[in-house]
C-alpha cells in the first residue's frame, strides 16, 4: 500500500520535472524578459522583476502596430476560410455528382503543396498583380493554405449527421440552402470553431509567406517585424525577448484554452 503510493508519487514528480525541463527553453525567455536590459547577469539571486522591457517595446517600437497587422491578416484568413470551407464541406458530404472524387482529391493535393515551394510562385504572381503589402491578400493566402484542413474537419462532422435531418427539413419545405443554414450549420459549429483555431494559429506562426509578400516595413506582420527588430538591435536582448513573449501570447493562450477539445476533434478519427 505505502509502496504503491510512494511509486505513484514518483510518477507524479517525474511527470512534473519532465514537463518543467521541456519548458526551460521558453521559460528562460519569459523569465529573462522581466530582467531589465542586463539579461546575461549570471545569477538569479539579484533578480528583481521589472516591466521596463515591455514598456519599451509597447511605447517605442513598431511591434504593437505590427501586432495589429498580423491580426488583420489572420482574421481575414478565418473570415474567408470558414464560410468557404463550410460550403465545400457540405458539398462533399451531401451532393452527388460525377467528378466529386476528383475535386476532393484536388483539395487533398493542395494541402501537400508546401509553402516553401509555393513562395516563389506566389511572389511572381504578386509582382504580376501588384498585390504586395496587401494584408487582405495575405489573409487569402493563409485561407488557401489551410483550406484542406478545414474542409476535412468540417466534412467529417457533416458525414456524422444523419440524413434523416435533411429529410425532415425537406418535408417541412426547406430548400437546400435553408436546410443547410437552419438545420445543419448549427450542428457543425464545433468543427468550424476547431478549424478556425487551427487556421488562426497556423497563420499567426507564418514567417515565410509574409516576409516575401509584404515588402513595406509599415505593413510587416509581427513575425517579420520581430526578426527585423532583432537584426537592427542585436544587443538589446531584453526588448527582443519581451517582444518574443508578446508574439507568442495569441497562439499559446488559444492552444492552452482549446487543447483538450482540439485533440478530441482531431484525433476522433484515428482510433486503432
Amino acid at each position: 500500500m505505502t509502496l504503491s503510493k510512494l511509486r505513484q508519487l514518483g510518477v507524479e514528480v517525474t511527470g512534473a520535472v519532465v514537463a518543467l525541463v521541456m519548458l526551460v527553453p521558453f521559460l528562460w525567455t519569459v523569465i529573462e524578459s522581466f530582467h531589465g536590459s542586463d539579461v546575461f547577469a549570471p545569477t538569479l539571486s539579484v533578480f528583481r522583476p521589472t516591466l521596463s522591457n515591455y514598456r519599451y517595446v509597447l511605447l517605442h517600437t513598431q511591434i504593437p502596430k505590427e501586432f495589429l497587422n498580423s491580426l488583420v491578416a489572420c482574421a481575414t484568413a478565418v473570415m474567408i476560410g470558414m464560410p468557404v470551407s463550410c460550403l465545400a464541406a457540405y458539398g462533399y458530404s451531401r451532393l452527388h455528382f460525377r467528378g466529386k472524387a476528383v475535386l476532393f482529391y484536388g483539395v487533398l493535393v493542395s494541402q501537400l503543396l508546401p509553402a516553401t515551394a509555393m513562395v516563389i510562385p506566389l511572389y511572381r504572381v504578386w509582382s504580376l498583380a501588384h498585390a504586395f503589402n496587401n494584408l487582405v491578400a495575405l489573409g487569402a493566402v493563409y485561407a488557401a493554405f489551410n483550406m484542406a484542413l478545414a474542409v476535412l474537419l468540417i466534412r467529417n462532422f457533416f458525414d456524422n449527421i444523419p440524413l434523416a435531418l435533411d429529410d425532415a427539413a425537406a418535408i417541412d419545405g426547406c430548400s437546400r440552402g435553408q436546410a443547410f443554414w437552419y438545420v445543419l450549420r448549427p450542428l457543425v459549429t464545433p468543427a468550424v470553431a476547431a478549424s478556425a483555431v487551427f487556421v488562426f494559429v497556423n497563420a499567426w506562426q507564418d514567417y515565410l509567406l509574409s516576409s516575401s509578400l509584404v515588402t513595406n516595413s509599415g505593413d510587416f506582420t509581427v513575425n517579420v517585424g520581430l526578426y527585423a527588430f532583432e537584426g537592427a538591435f542585436t544587443t538589446n536582448w531584453g526588448a527582443i525577448l519581451a517582444s518574443a513573449v508578446l508574439v507568442s501570447v495569441p497562439t499559446v493562450v488559444t492552444f492552452a484554452l482549446a487543447q483538450r477539445y482540439l485533440v478530441r476533434v482531431v484525433s476522433g478519427g484515428v482510433k486503432g
Binding site: 514537463a19 519548458l23 507568442s248
Partner: peptide, 13 residues
C-alpha cells in the same frame, strides 16, 4: 497543456 507550448510557438519565437 504546458507540454504543447513548444508546438504552439511561432517559428520566430
Amino acid at each position: 497543456p504546458l507540454l504543447i507550448i513548444p508546438w504552439a510557438l511561432p517559428g520566430i519565437v
